[in-house]
Simulated scan of single mutants.
Amino acid sequence: GYWYPSETGGPDRIIATHRLPAGQVNRTAFAFLHSLPAPHREWGPQVWQAMKAWPALPGAAPQGGKGRPAGKPTLSRPQPATGMRTNIVHQIKGDEADGVLLLLPDPGSVQRWATADPATDEVLRVWYVAVTRARRLAAIAVPEDETDALARLLTERQVPVRVV
């Protein structure tokens, strides 16, 4: 929101619109997040200062306070281990899990999956890594109006599908 205030949609759409290499965007995001202190009561202003000082990606056009973090962070209490873990795709390369959930929140993700060229589309390769880590179950979350298209795409490729 801060670096691309006029954009709608998630990072995939910004990457496509500005023709940014997904690897560069991911490395920049991870480096920025890694540079932040652990959340505490006055965390928001520190994040804001860090955002303003961070070198922008190509095409970024911050506009004043748009995208500024608001409110106080929710500081969670430590929870006992449940046997579940969350990772981003880049953390699980070469690893496996009984179940994997891939979130595709941007409209048009199913169409992209169906028609884009994995040889040139880094995002498709990342999605492939995610779903191939699953030993027993790969769940894909898409906008509700895209569930039928995803079910058809997977069924055409003889992938068992259950829409819930």
Rank of each mutant, 00 (worst) to 15 (best):
55 P>Y: 14
56 A>H: 07
57 L>S: 12
57 L>V: 12
58 P>R: 00
58 P>Y: 00
59 G>E: 07
59 G>D: 07
59 G>Y: 01
59 G>W: 04
60 A>T: 04
61 A>I: 06
61 A>F: 02
61 A>N: 15
62 P>R: 12
62 P>T: 02
63 Q>P: 00
63 Q>N: 11
64 G>N: 10
65 G>M: 11
65 G>C: 04
65 G>D: 14
65 G>I: 11
66 K>A: 12
70 A>L: 09
71 G>C: 01
71 G>P: 00
71 G>Q: 05
72 K>Y: 08
72 K>D: 13
72 K>R: 15
73 P>R: 13
74 T>E: 13
74 T>M: 08
74 T>R: 15
74 T>Q: 13
75 L>R: 03
76 S>K: 12
77 R>D: 10
77 R>F: 10
78 P>V: 10
78 P>T: 00
79 Q>N: 05
79 Q>H: 02
80 P>K: 15
81 A>G: 08
83 G>N: 13
83 G>M: 09
83 G>Q: 13
84 M>V: 10
84 M>Q: 09
85 R>C: 06
87 N>E: 11
87 N>Y: 14
88 I>Q: 14
89 V>C: 07
90 H>E: 02
90 H>D: 08
90 H>Q: 08
90 H>N: 14
91 Q>W: 03
94 G>M: 15
94 G>L: 06
95 D>A: 15
95 D>S: 15
95 D>R: 15
97 A>R: 15
97 A>S: 13
97 A>N: 03
98 D>Q: 15
98 D>C: 06
99 G>E: 13
100 V>F: 05
100 V>Y: 08
101 L>P: 08
101 L>N: 07
101 L>K: 00
101 L>V: 15
102 L>H: 12
103 L>H: 13
105 P>M: 04
105 P>I: 01
105 P>C: 00
106 D>S: 10
107 P>M: 01
107 P>V: 11
108 G>F: 05
108 G>R: 01
108 G>A: 01
110 V>N: 10
111 Q>G: 11
111 Q>K: 14
113 W>H: 07
113 W>G: 04
114 A>L: 00
115 T>C: 08
115 T>Q: 10
115 T>I: 11
115 T>H: 14
117 D>W: 04
117 D>V: 07
118 P>Y: 04
122 E>D: 15
122 E>Y: 09
122 E>M: 09
124 L>R: 06
124 L>G: 04
124 L>S: 01
124 L>V: 08
125 R>S: 08
125 R>L: 12
126 V>D: 13
127 W>H: 05
130 A>F: 01
131 V>G: 03
131 V>I: 15
131 V>E: 09
131 V>C: 04
132 T>K: 10
132 T>Y: 00
133 R>H: 04
134 A>V: 06
134 A>H: 00
136 R>A: 12
136 R>Q: 12
138 A>F: 03
138 A>S: 09
139 A>N: 01
139 A>D: 04
141 A>Q: 12
141 A>S: 14
142 V>E: 09
142 V>Q: 08
144 E>T: 10
144 E>I: 02
145 D>F: 03
146 E>L: 01
148 D>G: 05
150 L>C: 06
150 L>N: 04
